[in-house]
């Protein structure tokens, strides 16, 4: 995401410098030209803020049970009703944003770091590195993803962080293949040849020259992968092996809430809407970023 901040102007980061006027002008032009992208950047930032300030936004302790008021419909006191143990659904959903944001960041970081490093090495060094990494990724892809995740989580012991590791591992092939393909192209470019000629070390070329130049597709992939990670974790929660109760995890809340659809559908609707909105935002942001960053598609 570091690369993303460099490439995408985030409104709140702009401000009081001497160039403010010019920037403001370019900002409004940016917004007009890229309405969808701007809108989803704003929504995304809002989601991040909700996650960061979840404790302040929650109206009740999200894990405190109150059996006497279980399964209430939305009211002034409980905006999204209460769950099967009388916990405030609004507070749980808000607090769940924190969990899901952590999932996206940690899982995607794992996939990104492992996948990109493997991809760089395989693409740039070729030979044995390419063979080993390639075979590993082939083997992993051959495994049915959800079963691999279940097996990893069970082997490590169920829990949110182990589930994030499993989801992170699931995403490795995507980044590996993306990076490797990009590196193979970049290797033939003149700036790489030039760096080689002046005797830059191979690691330096990989990380200082090639990586920044292939960052765009990775940023797009990261945004899409954030959505994937949240969905994958929801599936693991659905199977009951991710978050430790009473942690307010959206997937786990939907998992239980789905059993109560006839009784109190709000128990599923709140977290369902939250997870949908979040994943939707990640995907839309990824899509819009791709359109923005890919000059070929921008023409016309």
């Amino acid at each position: 995401m570091v690369a993303g901040e460099r490439l995408v102007p985030i409104p709140s980061a702009l401000g009081e410098s001497a160039l403010a006027a010019r920037r403001k002008h370019s900002l409004s032009r940016f917004i007009v030209n890229h309405r969808v992208l701007s809108a989803f950047i704003v929504i995304f930032v809002a989601l991040v803020l909700v996650a960061v300030f979840a404790d302040a936004l929650a109206t009740y302790n999200p894990t405190k049970t109150a059996p006497t008021i279980k399964m209430r419909s939305p009211s002034g006191a409980h905006w999204l009703g209460t769950d099967y143990l009388g916990r405030d659904m609004y507070s749980r959903v808000i607090k769940g944003a924190q969990v899901s944001m952590r999932v996206a960041v940690i899982a995607v970081s794992i996939s990104l770091v492992v996948g990109v490093v493997m991809g760089l090495m395989a693409g740039y060094f070729g030979g044995l590195a390419d063979l080993l990494c390639g075979r590993y990724v082939d083997a992993q892809l051959a495994f049915p993803g959800i079963l691999l995740a279940i097996a990893i989580v069970n082997a490590l012991g169920p829990g949110l962080y182990h589930a994030m590791i499993a989801v992170g591992i699931l995403g490795v092939p995507l980044y590996f293949r993306l990076t490797r393909g990009q590196v193979l192209q970049a290797k033939e470019q003149e700036y790489v040849r030039a760096a080689e000629v002046i005797g830059a070390s191979r690691w330096r070329i990989m990380f200082r020259h090639i990586l920044p130049n292939i960052a765009n597709p990775l940023v797009v992939a990261a945004s899409l992968a954030g959505g994937n990670a949240i969905l994958a974790l929801a599936a693991l929660s659905f199977l009951g092996i991710a978050a430790q109760p009473p942690t307010p995890d959206w997937g786990a809340m939907i998992n239980i809430g789905k059993d109560y659809l006839h009784n109190n559908m709000w128990m599923a609707i709140g977290p369902g809407a939250a997870i949908f909105l979040t994943v939707f935002t990640y995907y839309m942001l990824g899509d819009a970023l791709r359109d923005y960053l890919d000059p070929r598609l921008k023409t016309r």
Binding site: N154, G157, P158, G159, G240, I241, Q244, P245, P246
Partner: peptide, 10 residues
């Protein structure tokens, strides 16, 4: 008390 849901076999 911390809660640890695990598989039945485990």
């Amino acid at each position: 008390m911390s809660l640890q849901p695990i598989e039945f076999a485990t």
